[in-house]
Design a protein around this nucleic acid. Structure first.
Lengths: 208, 208
DNA sequence: TTATTATTGTGAAAAATGGAACAATATGAT
DNA sequence: ATCATATTGTTCCATTTTTCACAATAATAA
């Protein structure tokens, strides 16, 4: 069983690079082409594939369409993923407007907020009262949620959606949340990403 | 010299957790408190500190204010970081409106776009023509940029800002870019984050 | 003062990750 | 048909990262 998050991220990147190659008219690809496109070594590419039993042809490389099929299957992209957003603030509403997910087979089907002023049932992505989240999650069988509420509200909101059946959360609140075993929480934090970048830029500046 | 990105990310998280503890009135903290708050082991906390020569008191833990001072120093948070955003689309403009960076000492001071319709010099964060980026970066000594332009334009935009003196880029375009030695590029990709989450949720579902 | 206890700091062990190297082999050339 | 070549798949090795374990020691209690 694969627990290496980086490995799965690389699979996503291979997939994205393959679509670009395919759009350029390529039909097959070698491990070192993919390695270049994604910024890893060719060994790494082949090993990643080998872990998932993906094989190519000696001297012939990999056929892009078959490879994409396998990667999409591994990444669960063979069916539409319905996602909800909890929190209708800056980040939440930007995510609801963002069209980039759709081409990846990820569809945000509703947003939720406690503030009655934010409710809007006629939006392309309707924004509903948080009280309705539980029943919405259950009736629509939603497994994935994006959590974009203020720090102070994050734990409570998480408890609510986990209890309703959410299995995975992408959390934008900048603190660690306690989730039940049944629910995986991943963290996105742009401030930390920037801090990280600033640190390495500073280090590079000092050592040059 | 520290090259471990995860380690630096943990420092940011320790810092954030320490501010919360401080706000609750705590004055000192033990490695296992921090470990709980951040979701790592106590050994890890102490080892991270040890790497940077941060020391506490046997049986007394760490004094929060001193610890914060050291972490902030390491993370370059002792001075305001001025950042520009390249690209005035959905993501770019959401970032320019986002107020969360300011409390972290990160200030977005301008945006840039090629589309004349997006130019707006009287905005709180002015949006300027991309042609002006070069001179703006040089005259203001900007080192950090956020790149939020369409895939197709990303490499060219990166070349431009690197030539103007940018040393670090947080790139939202979902492809690997070629940057000169002098410039570090980090990647943010929400589609990949969601794919990753979906993968692990699917795995958990299958193995339960 | 001495003993006890809690906590740090770190060296050594273990685990995870990534990379190099090369045997196996399919393809194409002669 | 045979040889040369290019590329995969995998094993083994190196490096990085994390965890364990415990000596050192400061604070507190007796």
């Amino acid at each position: 069983m694969i627990t290496n998050k980086n490995c799965i991220i690389r699979l996503s990147r291979y997939k994205n690079a393959l679509y670009r190659l395919q759009a350029l008219g390529f039909v097959k690809v070698f491990s070192d082409n993919l390695a270049d496109a994604v910024g890893v070594t060719a060994s790494q590419v082949r090993k990643d594939f080998s872990i998932f039993g993906i094989s190519g042809n000696k001297k012939g490389g990999y056929q892009i369409d078959l490879l994409l099929e396998k990667l999409n299957n591994i990444l669960g992209k063979d069916r539409l993923q319905k996602v909800i957003v909890v929190g209708g603030g800056h980040i939440g509403s930007a995510l609801m407007r963002y069209r980039g997910f759709e081409k990846e087979g990820i569809k945000i089907i509703a947003g939720f907020d406690i503030d009655p002023a934010k409710i809007n049932r006629s939006n392309p992505v309707p924004i509903l009262p948080l009280e309705e989240a539980r029943i919405f999650i259950k009736t629509n069988g939603i497994r994935i949620a994006i959590l974009a509420v203020p720090d102070i509200a994050a734990q409570q909101a998480l408890d609510l959606i986990c209890a309703a059946g959410i299995k995975g959360v992408l959390n934008f609140a900048p603190l660690r949340l306690k989730a039940p075993e049944s629910c995986i929480v991943n963290y996105v934090n742009l401030e930390i990403e920037l801090e990280n970048l600033i640190y390495f830029v500073n280090v590079a500046e000092k050592t040059e």
